[in-house]
Design a protein around this nucleic acid. Sequence first.
DNA 1: GCCGTTTTCGGCCCGACTGTTTTCAGTCG
Length: 579
Amino acid sequence: MKNQEIAHIFTGIADILEIRGENPFRIRAYRRAAQNIEGLAEDVTGIHEAELKKIPGIGQDLADKIQEYIKTGHLVFYEKLKKEVPSGLVEMLHVPGLGPKTVKMLFEKIKIIAIDDLERLAKKGGLKGLPGIQKKTEDNILKGIAMIKRRTERSPIGHVLPVAEDILRKLKEGAPVKELSLAGSLRRWKDTVKDIDVLASSKDPEYVMHVFIRLPQVKEVLMKGPTKTSIITHEGIQVDLRVVEEGSFGAALAYFTGSKAHNIRLREMAVKRGLKINEYGVFNIKTGRKIGGRKESDIYKALKLDFVPPELREDTGEIEAAVYKRLPDLVELDEIRGDLHVHSKDSDGSLRIEEIIDEARKRGYQYIAVTDHSKSLGIARGMSKEQLLDQNKKILSFNKRLRGLRLLSGVEMDIKSDGTMDYPDEVLKKLDIVVASIHSGFRQSRAQLTKRLVSAMKNPHVTIIAHPTGRLIGEREAYEVNMEDILTTAKSTGTAIEINAYPLRLDLGDMYIKRAKELGIKLAISTDTHVAYQFDFMRYGVGIARRGWLGEKDVLNTYTYKELMKHCRVKQFKIRTTV
DNA sequence: GCCGTTTTCGGCCCGACTGTTTTCAGTCG
């Protein structure tokens, strides 16, 4: 998939043009195009020129550049630019506090072309006296370089959200806030987030800030003003707090929730209607009169749009859908009726069946599947055929006594490197549910890996393909598969695809989920729980599902027990009659 | 460089904070 590469090149072009001080709108065009290509589920390689231009932000010129890169493997325009601007300057742009103007100045005045040189000089105090640079700026540049060396990368949402919720609780207790909410990518449930955005309304913003910078979580205060303050937590996560008046809370919430691309679209629409939108409200440009802003919905009403849930605000079609009243009714956490991927003590989990039952009851589930590892996965104490059949009997006997909850007898079956299944059909057919997944041979070719998943889906007993790309966010790249082939096979065989809610996985990712929905595939949101608290990962899975535009009907585990079992039988029938 | 409910040319989102300045440029989100 060349999407990432092309997005990377366009971003690189934008950086270089920025250093050269070129037309900001041209720069924005490259950035917007990069973002839209990156968010594409389809491989650009397979898209024809006429279709390329239908991607928002791609016109004739960028379509040509994309084609050139696909055909030749490089882009002459970019190669030329790179020769003119040293790569070290582009790196310097990533230092917080350093922007294109300063980088350009440093290059022109004292020929700095690398971060290391800049750091050495700043430490000696050699930057003072340059245009616009005195002691403070020099210190800030050093701080910025230190920060980039600590590498504050994006963190999985599952690591950041609990920190954010803790800060929210403390602010609610100790600060005079009226309304309080998370904003930014955290509120949009992105799989990874860079920082925590918090919005509050208050009559005494100064005091709110006073409380905020004294929270026990605070390691360092980056900046402090009456409406905007930023800190770094001990975990190294940046938290931005904005405080506004009550009458502006809705407008501010919309503004700070983003995404940036979504906001820009809203504001452009506003201008065309003679309105202005900022974080304080919606205003009539001519009269200056405020026509809304207390509630977030005011913004959408003013533009005659349906309310867009935060998870959809990425400018990937949600605005058009809001215009034509075609936004989906998104799946909710309380519509989930069960968890279809859970490990017990019988393989590498820590839970006894009794404990799994308790946890399911606590969450009001109708059913819960026990899906331990299969024999090939020795490292996870995978079960032999005999052990699996024993467990199956145990579950049947539990079910005789259970009321209002069904234990599903299942397995997480390894799809072996040669593409064969870990158990024969006569074993699988005794189970309620079979979750199949890849745990080995990640480095096989794209074709081989795709073939393994496809052959698993063609098995009549395989209900769900688990964590279909194998990615571990920040730790392991997804293995290479032809996702389009996998999704079309899922459709034709009636196999569901898992959205693994484990924070490091969140696999499928949102852009593929959206594509899966277009194809009419069912998705199962599962936690892959090994330890009790992990049942609560469900909310991350639901968040990502919502980002993929899923409604209740798209999600297999919103089905009742009866509907779920019927779904499995339909697949078995379908395969037997077509093979 | 993109794009079209005023437009195929001339627009293109908006404001807070910081530091270096005497009114503002640069950076960030």
